[in-house]
Design a protein around this nucleic acid. Structure first.
Lengths: 362, 362
DNA sequence: TTGTATGCGTTATCAT
DNA sequence: ATGATAACGCATACAA
């Protein structure tokens, strides 16, 4: 820990310890003026503004965020907690959010919960302690303490990837239940009557649960039974998608349509179907949810629901930046999803009814 | 903006504005003592320690990061800039890094450069202004200004996913060139003599460039020519992988082995090979790089190089936390990669030589 | 329009 | 071992 004063000969770039006062001295103005030029340039006379700006660049001055935050009570930092970055729609949403925040001079703190509500709480606590000006969560399965803690801190926050949330929490996302139901109805129209479901339903994944419930509701409405044995819960990997399909088909050979709550599971299922010698969609139809990049490129391409992760991330960023600036926005935003019909679905075997193409929902 | 003093009846959770002084008063000690209990419990008498702890929990006190940072000159925040989170190995690395930092009480600021060096510089500047205690970058293609800026701030940093970097920059990653060369040698042993390459070579992707150079070197050493027309540069999507293979094969039907610098390109190529009626590996061998989840699940499963993204993220986190604490670590870490032979590669058509299985390199 | 002066919440140095 | 006190760097209320 040795202080290296005057270690480098160049005076301008020598020490990173340039502070507001140094700039002020160099420009021959008061510290307050420098601060004004930096924060509200319009209220400073052009000449001083110019003088100060030159001094700033000459000294390569950058504001110290700590002093700034202490005085202004804002860190220009937002936080986000996602289940995992390993799921591409979350990675995409986070990236979109960061891109938008970058335009606003904000910066993004990221954390992941691994689908565990308790861990989510811990990460939220950590982010709050680090002074985030706002917070984005995913889904609607937080512990009550989590909401309590955030509110106690008086920090604006919202949840994403769902359209509605309990407890007056703002939400930006899609109607998972409705989307899944529309997918089920589409398959019903194709004549399918024997459904299998592969869903990842850990405790704190309410999105998959909503999707599952949406399917259930649509089938119930059409008086199509969905026995317990036709529903399999699997964690979200290609491997488990394969395994799910195998179990489903071996125990219930009558199934003609397998609905998965995510594309990852669905693509695993597609791969396994091929391994089992099942032709898709001639023998069996398979659907996903999310519309990840691979969905359109797989053989056969996957019928799925597109989730506008980019828009979600952008909207969350905009909303939080506004809220942090004190602008109250009462919007609960339900973003549109789309049912994208591709090659993995077709009429139930033995029927001649043709699928309608490219229906859009909502 | 109305101050709501005493708005809630519960005194303990009412205002988030509990500060160190409040705790001190409640515990009947000085602020200094509270600070000591929080930061150096061991130098405080057990009784006071106890009294203070109780007051802390009773008031639900959390330290204010701004005041803390201002005084201690550390934010307990690290920054990372990746090209994009859309590439799974980067998402995986970032997640691993965050997980590790979380254990240390650190928090992670994230930014993405979209493979643009100038943007990377901007994001670095932003992170530095936000007071990060350390910084992780990707690759070795930064602008000189980027390094200059970071050093000027005196912040510890390193670069990842590469084993070496110019200018004495610390690096944690794999030997991309060597790994790609070993893959090329493996294909040479299988009898291949006509190679095609699909690489994503934007200006600031030195990893792909290294891989490409590694291949080139291995082929040159074996006196196998690699004509210009056999090398195609494509951005990293499945679509472009398809397109790359099509162009390559249509223009150069003699090619029997296509090496891609990433799995995404390779899987696109595999998909296109199937569309073109080419059997893999009977007619053509295809290789990737990264070993993403899909690589082992595709049909045929992809021969590739595994990149230990988790280890990279963890090591980067550990290194930076140490460095931020003032511990100087001179380690440049080259992590091991593995050549993973799967079903997408086989002997060159017309030969009976069999592939050796599961060789590991380095 | 510009300057002066104060305090944001914390930690650390100094006494005691 | 504990308490008083002085910064840390900046933004703003107020004075000029």
């Amino acid at each position: 820990m040795t202080k290296n004063k005057n270690a480098t000969p160049t005076p301008t770039l020598s020490d990173s310890k340039v502070k507001l006062g140094d700039v002020a001295r160099k420009a021959g103005v008061s510290p307050a003026t420098v601060s004004r030029v930096l924060n509200h340039p319009e209220i400073v006379s052009p000449e001083l503004r110019e003088r100060v700006s030159r001094a700033v660049t000459a000294l390569a001055y950058t504001r110290d965020s700590a002093g700034r935050a202490l005085k202004s009570r804002r860190t220009r930092t937002l936080g986000v907690v996602v289940p995992t970055l390993g799921i591409s729609i979350f990675a995409e949403g986070v990236e979109a959010m960061q891109n938008r925040l970058s335009e606003h001079g904000y910066t993004l703190l990221i954390a992941n919960s691994q689908y565990e509500a308790r861990r989510e709480l811990q990460e939220v606590a950590s982010l709050l302690e680090h002074g985030v000006d706002g917070l984005a969560l995913v889904g609607d399965a937080q512990l009550p303490e989590t909401h309590q803690l955030i509110r106690q801190h008086g920090v604006p926050y919202l949840t994403t990837y769902v359209a509605t949330a309990r407890d007056e929490v703002q939400a930006i996302g899609i109607d998972n239940e409705g989307a899944a139901a529309s997918m089920a109805r589409y398959l019903l129209e194709l004549g399918h009557r024997h459904f299998g479901i592969i869903a990842n339903l850990p405790e704190s994944n309410d999105r998959s649960m909503s999707r599952y419930l949406g399917i259930r509701a649509a089938l119930a409405e059409a008086d199509v039974p969905l026995p317990h044995s036709h529903v399999i819960s699997m964690s979200q990997t290609l491997q488990h998608g394969r395994q799910g399909l195998r179990q489903l088909i071996q125990s219930n050979p009558e199934i003609t349509a397998v609905m998965c709550t995510t594309d990852t599971l669905a693509i695993g299922a597609l791969a396994e179907a091929r391994s089992l010698g099942l032709k898709v969609p001639q023998h069996i139809s398979i659907t996903g949810f999310d519309d990840i990049e691979l969905a359109s490129q797989f053989d056969p391409p996957l019928t799925t629901i597109s989730v506008p992760a980019n828009e979600i991330g952008r909207a969350a960023a905009d909303h939080l930046v506004n809220a942090a600036a004190g602008v109250r926005i009462p919007v609960i935003t339900t973003l549109p999803h789309r049912l994208i019909v591709r090659g993995s679905t077709g009429p139930a075997p033995g029927l001649v009814r043709r699928p309608k193409l490219h229906r859009t929902a909502e």
